[in-house]
Design a protein around this nucleic acid. Structure first.
Lengths: 232, 232
DNA sequence: GTCTATATGTAGATAGAC
DNA sequence: GTCTATCTACATATAGAC
C-alpha cells in the first residue's frame, strides 16, 4: 500500500547490461502507451507487446502498474528540471531578466524538447500532461515538478516583491495549462482556426500569452484594455 | 462503427414518464462517474450502481459506453451554449465591448455554473475538461462546443479587424485551457502556493489572465514588459 | 532475468423472462 | 422498460520452470 513515492530502493547487486537495456525498452514502451491512452486506457499487455517482452517481465521491472507509471514519469524528470534551471541561470547571468525571460526558460525547455528532442521526449511531454491534469497523480507531480516550479515562482516573486505570491502561483499554473494545451490541443486550435494554412502554435506566441497573463494577474490594472479596440 | 455524432434517432413512441426519469438518473450517474474517473476509468457497473439500476438497463438507455459518454456530454451542452450567447448579447446591447468583456462572457458562464449551479454542473464542468483534453473526443467537442467558441472568436475578430484570426484562435484555446485548469487544478495551485490561506482562484483573476494573454498574442509588442520590474 | 502458464477479478455487452 | 443470468474477452498479477 505504501506507494513508494521516494526514490526506488537500491538493488543489492548492480543489474546486468542486458537487464538495464530491457528495463529501458519497457520504460520507453510504457512512456509511449501511457502518453497515448492515459493510465486507465493503457494495458500492461500493450506495453509488453510494444517492448517485445513478456507480460510477467513488465511486472518484474515495473513492480505493478502504478509503480511503473511512477517510474516512467520520474525517469526523465530530473533531466527536464536540470535543463530548465540551467536555462534560467544562463539567462540570469546575462543581465537583468524580464518576466518574459523567466517564462521563456520554463516553457521553452519543455516545448523545445517536445519539438526537437525526438519521439521519446514528445511522448514524455504528453505524459506530463496526463500527470498535471489528474489529481490522482498529485504526489508524483509534487515529487517531480513542484520543486522546479516553486523555484521559478520564487524567481518571479523576487522580481516583483510587492506582488502577492499566491497570485503569482495562480498565474503560473494557468501558464502551465496553456503550455500543455500547446502540445495536446493542437487539434482544437486547428478546428477553431478559420485559416488552416496558418497555425501559430509556436513558442513565441505561447510565451507572449503566458507572460502577459501572469503580468495581468500580478497587477491587473495596467494591462487590461477597457477602451475600444484600436482598429475599430 | 458509425459513431452517430448527429442527434440521437427519434423514437417511435414517446417514452413513459418513468422511463424518462430512469434515463435521467442514469445520465446523472454517468456524468458523475465519467467526471471523476474519465472514460477509461469509469465502468458501466459503477454508473449502474450509482443510478440504482441494473447493468443491462444502462446499456438499454445508453446504447453502449461510447454512446452513453456522448449523450452525457451533449445533454447539457445546449444549455451552456445558450447561457454564454445570452450573456454575450446582453453585454453587447449594453454598449461597446472590450476584449475583457467577451472573455468574461465565455469563461464566466462556465465558472459560475460550476461554482453555483449545483453538483450536476460541477460534475459536468469537469466532464467538459476531459472532452477538451483528449483528441479521442474531437468529434464531440466539434459538435458541442466549437460552434459557440467560433462565435466568440468571430466576435473578437470583428473587434480587431487587423488581427490574424489564427492568432485569435490560438489565444482562445490557451484561455480555455486556463479556464479548465481553474476548475481541475486547484490542487496544483494550492501545492505551489506558499500562502495556503490565500487562494485567488476567483473568476476575476482568471478573466484578467485570459484577456491579457489574448491581447498579447494578437499584438505582442505593447504588452510584454522587457524593462526591469517596477519594484526592484 | 526471462519465459510459460495460470490464477483471479472485472470489463462491456446481450439473451430472455417478466 | 426492467431485471436476472450469462457470455466472452481482457485486465493485473503471480508461481514456478529454465
Amino acid at each position: 500500500m505504501n506507494s513508494q513515492i521516494t526514490q526506488p530502493k537500491q538493488r543489492q547487486r548492480a543489474p546486468s547490461k542486458r537487464s538495464l537495456a530491457t528495463r529501458s525498452r519497457i520504460l520507453d514502451a510504457a512512456e509511449q502507451v501511457f502518453a497515448d491512452r492515459g493510465f486507465d486506457g493503457a494495458s500492461i499487455r500493450d506495453i509488453a507487446g510494444l517492448a517485445g517482452v513478456q507480460v510477467g517481465l513488465v511486472h518484474h521491472h515495473g513492480g505493478g502498474k502504478e509503480e511503473l507509471f511512477h517510474q516512467t514519469v520520474a525517469r526523465r524528470a530530473d533531466e527536464l528540471s536540470a535543463l530548465r534551471l540551467q536555462d534560467l541561470e544562463k539567462r540570469k547571468s546575462a543581465g537583468p531578466m524580464s518576466l518574459h525571460d523567466v517564462v521563456e526558460c520554463f516553457v521553452g525547455a519543455y516545448v523545445r524538447l517536445a519539438r526537437d528532442g525526438g519521439p521519446h521526449w514528445l511522448a514524455y511531454a504528453r505524459l506530463v500532461a496526463h500527470v498535471s491534469a489528474d489529481p490522482r497523480w498529485r504526489k508524483i507531480a509534487a515529487e517531480c515538478f513542484d520543486p522546479t516550479a516553486s523555484r521559478f515562482i520564487g524567481e518571479i516573486a523576487v522580481m516583483y516583491p510587492a506582488a502577492d505570491p499566491a497570485r503569482i502561483a495562480t498565474g503560473f499554473v494557468y501558464s502551465v495549462a496553456a503550455m500543455l494545451a500547446n502540445l495536446t490541443s493542437a487539434w482544437r486550435i486547428n478546428a477553431l482556426n478559420p485559416d488552416p494554412d496558418n497555425a501559430p502554435g509556436d513558442l513565441d506566441t505561447l510565451v507572449a500569452f503566458c507572460a502577459a497573463g501572469i503580468a495581468a494577474v500580478i497587477d491587473p490594472a495596467p494591462v487590461i484594455d477597457t477602451a475600444a479596440p484600436r482598429d475599430a
